[in-house]
Amino acid sequence: MMARLVEHLCSELRLLAGAVDTLAWTLWPKGPPPMMAAAALPVPVQYNVEQISGSLLEDLKEEGFLWAVPKSRRSRERRLTRKFGLENKHKKMLPYRKLLTCDDCGHVHEPGRLCPNCYGENKKITQAMQEAMVTMQGLNPVEYEAVPVFKGEKVNTGDGFHEGKRIFEVPTERPKWFSNRLTVKSNVTTSSDTTVVKPTNLA
């Protein structure tokens, strides 16, 4: 009677300890939960080796299976060949031949992509123009198209080309490859006949 009572008490205490442990783990989690940790502890189990080994091997032979694993060591040569290939056989290191020559500057570029040289030139002038345009527009409502005038250029307002447009002055010179207007002969001249019109006096 006494022994049973003590046993019961012990089991109750164990449960309580487990509950306290779990609570502590949920509040300050460190590592695996205590029950799991207990499960992970190495438990010395004694098997009767002679009894099991024979039957286990037989089981494996008949219905057990093994995962696919390498059967033999892959030699160093074979491994490196698989990795990098042979120079004279498969996986050759070939030069990249999918390149075109730019019609304008002669630099190479990938097909379907802009030429790096031309784009670099273009980017420089574009950035200068954007800066000039943004400073001209400022924070006022943008209501007109913006037209660039480069350094040293004079504007002819007679033909009405700049009507309803705002001029922004770019501090660099106009690049030779960026023609002003291809269809009309020329609007911008360097002669002194035309009057220079500042952007503030326009429109």
Partner: peptide
Amino acid sequence: HKAPNIYPGFYRERVVLELKGNPFP
């Protein structure tokens, strides 16, 4: 437009997006 790949680079494909009829070259 597809921007040129600069070697050596990060090989993130770069593009140039523009509004048509802009004043730039």
